[in-house]
């Protein structure tokens, strides 16, 4: 039976398309207009002026420092997550220790802790440790808050490795270390790529920790730069839009070339 075209759904899908695309259209066209041109033409009109000054102004305004800081934070957070989560997940999947079972439960409970809820003590800890207004002060809590979901994702991924494979390794007299590197890591590649994307997104898009734990221009990350830019020059809409566009470019890049990994990382699921 040939499906009939569904006109109701078709109309609805076009309306939602407009809701998604109109703001994107305004953003992109605003970035190439002068502030005056944008103001006189109005957001929805075709561009009446053309300039690349908005991007130039971002560069001279120090936005590249923010980008660089965000890159450092993102890479460090991913590095920490990739170093500590796979061994933990391996232990959770293979160990019979009750202690590890308890640890896993604690991590699951950690899924429930919103960052806002513990930001005051974290601010206190980071200040006492002398890490206030430093990138490392952002990196440590951001990485810690990635751990519960990343552990959950990777544990799920490692459970798909059949026990027979472990037993075969053990028969050959393999140490846990050897099983980990020769069996577990190669077979959980997709789970690991999911936790890399997930934690990278958390770090790249993170806002609360930078907001509370840094204050100078030299430690500013992109999200905070956007917020400050908005508070200070809220009327310079083309400049703001250029900054917003720049902040999403790396994620867009990943979306275009590693869509599956990005989708799974965003949803914090899968890894199979």
């Amino acid at each position: 039976m040939k499906p009939r075209p569904n006109y109701f759904a078709g109309a609805g899908s076009i309306i939602w398309l407009l809701i998604v695309l109109v703001p994107i259209y305004v953003m992109v066209t605003a970035t190439i207009q002068t502030q005056q041109g944008y103001a006189s033409a109005g957001p929805l009109s075709l561009p009446s002026s053309f300039t690349l000054d908005n991007f130039g102004a971002l560069v001279t305004g120090g936005f590249l420092t923010y980008v660089w800081n965000t890159v450092i934070v993102t890479v460090s957070v991913v590095a920490i997550v990739v170093l500590v989560v796979p061994p933990l997940s391996y232990a959770v999947v293979r160990s019979r220790s009750r202690g590890i079972s308890l640890i896993f439960r604690t991590f699951l409970l950690g899924l429930a802790i919103p960052a806002q809820a513990v930001i005051v003590p974290i601010f206190y800890l980071i200040s006492v440790a002398g890490l206030y207004d430093s990138l490392i002060g952002i990196i440590l809590p951001t990485a810690a808050f990635c751990l519960p979901i990343c552990t959950l994702i990777l544990t799920g991924s490692m459970r798909d490795i059949t026990p027979e494979l472990y037993e075969a390794m053990a028969m050959d007299g393999a140490t846990p270390m050897r099983s980990f590197f020769q069996l577990v890591l190669p077979l959980s590649k997709s789970g690991i790529s999911t936790i890399i994307v997930f934690s990278a997104l958390q770090a790249w898009n993170g806002f609360l920790f930078p907001l509370i734990l840094t204050q100078s221009a030299s430690t500013k990350v992109i999200t905070l730069g956007l917020f400050d830019f908005q508070s200070q020059y809220g009327v310079n809409i083309p400049g703001l839009m250029a900054a917003v566009l720049l902040s999403m470019l790396p994620v867009l890049f990943v979306y275009l070339f590693a869509r599956r990994a990005l989708v799974q990382g965003l949803m914090g699921v899968g890894g199979k």
């Binding site: 500590v84 061994p87 391996y90 232990a91 160990s95 220790s97 991590f107 519960p148 846990p176």
Partner: peptide, 15 residues
């Protein structure tokens, strides 16, 4: 050939 407690330690301490 099962991993011991040490494998879980870094993540646990950090968390």
């Amino acid at each position: 050939g099962r991993p011991g407690f040490a494998w879980a330690l870094p993540a646990t301490v950090f968390f």
